[in-house]
Simulated scan of single mutants.
Amino acid sequence: MPSTSHSLRVSRVARLPLAAAMACALALAPAFAADAPQGGQRAGTAAAELKPAERGELARQFVLKWGGYVQRMYDVPVAEWAGRMVPTFIAADPMNLRNAMARETFEGAVAELTGTGHRLSDGDVVDRYAMAPADLSGQEAAAIGTQALGSTAGDLVFTAVTPCRIVDTRVAGGRINADSSRSFLGVAVNAGANFTFQGGSATNCNVAAVGASAIVLNVTAVLPSAAGFATVYKSGETRPLAASVNYAPGAIVNNSVVVGVPNPLGINDFVIYTFAQSDYVVDIVGYFSPPQATDLQCTETPISTFNISAGAATFINNPVCPDGYSEVMPYCYTNASGVYSRGSGVNSNTSGLATFCAWQNTTAATQQVFGGSICCRVPGR
């Protein structure tokens, strides 16, 4: 299934003011014109410079794609956010901007643009997704931070997914009895898994083996038999005193909850306790997982041709890597007999730290050699 940020975009884009995106693109036009290439050539098609009109169109598409999500999740009007994004659109290099448009979450797209990304803070997540009674004790409040949002290896990164049904006791399992608990899975163990056995989707809800330490759920109590509450908590832990959903008899009540899950995954992920007999429907809307390392992005410069004079021993500086990339390895080659390599490396005395190839021509004629650079960077930087 597509990611959730994608679903939020679909649900709101019809109401997203197109004028905001167009105004953003028009405001950017003069800056983009000034940003036109001034000579020189980027290596590889992925790192090729964008024409001002192309950059403006990508910026407009970015605003249209994510404006509704930003307005809903961050409470920032679309036009205001688009204006704030102008310096980022101008500064983003071509590969970053193109790759950002291909990402399926807003946080991932911004990380691609800037190299830093945006993550909902713990406070934002609690305010938006978790229900906490007004008389929540200090110990219980700490438990929300350390258990529901705590990391197994550092800060957790939030990823939204398309809201997807993982539990429906009306379909499977039946009503949960009064003063009883039932355990459920919240994260699919592999790509072929599904949630039909607990009344949910026949898909894996795009949460297969994500390494989650916490998940974000919309939990609905359906027609409880009496007034009461439900508590959703991490499998394997003691049930906390805080309520996740409060309900009246015969009501249909929904609330969003952040709940920790075992990492690595256990037999079950979370538990629902209910004070009164009731059906429950649960949709997953996102998850928190430890940051993951990403592969380097690499490209290569054009291969240049150089002439080595007869009997000469010299070195040649190769083309410099594109902005944002670092030289990783020189490329040195010749098919001329009697011309030998005398080494290669990075010339720290040159602007841009060009790689070099050293040659010795033992023949009585000028010979051709070839050189270039392999260039890499951390994605998004």
Rank of each mutant, 00 (worst) to 15 (best):
residue 186 G to E: 10
residue 72 R to K: 14
residue 215 I to G: 02
residue 197 F to S: 13
residue 25 A to Y: 05
residue 192 G to F: 10
residue 41 Q to E: 15
residue 294 T to C: 01
residue 103 R to Q: 14
residue 16 L to C: 12
residue 327 E to P: 11
residue 222 V to P: 03
residue 376 C to R: 07
residue 4 T to W: 01
residue 52 P to F: 11
residue 24 C to L: 12
residue 369 V to Y: 06
residue 64 L to G: 02
residue 374 I to A: 10
residue 257 V to L: 05
residue 29 A to L: 15
residue 172 A to K: 13
residue 283 D to H: 04
residue 283 D to N: 11
residue 254 N to R: 13
residue 130 A to S: 13
residue 245 V to S: 09
residue 338 G to P: 08
residue 42 R to C: 08
residue 218 N to A: 10
residue 339 V to M: 04
residue 371 G to N: 04
residue 202 A to G: 11
residue 39 G to L: 11
residue 274 T to R: 05
residue 21 A to M: 06
residue 120 L to E: 04
residue 148 A to M: 07
residue 306 F to I: 03
residue 4 T to M: 02
residue 37 P to F: 10
residue 19 A to F: 11
residue 74 Y to P: 02
residue 194 N to S: 09
residue 35 D to H: 15
residue 158 F to Q: 07
residue 231 T to R: 06
residue 78 V to P: 06
residue 338 G to F: 12
residue 28 L to C: 14
residue 63 V to D: 08
residue 315 F to D: 08
residue 50 L to K: 08
residue 318 N to R: 09
residue 31 A to Y: 15
residue 100 A to S: 13
residue 194 N to V: 04
residue 154 G to W: 03
residue 6 H to E: 13
residue 330 P to A: 10
residue 317 N to F: 01
residue 208 A to D: 14
residue 4 T to R: 04
residue 279 D to L: 03
residue 141 A to C: 01
residue 158 F to P: 04
residue 263 N to F: 05
residue 65 K to R: 15
residue 349 N to M: 14
residue 366 T to V: 11
residue 178 A to V: 09
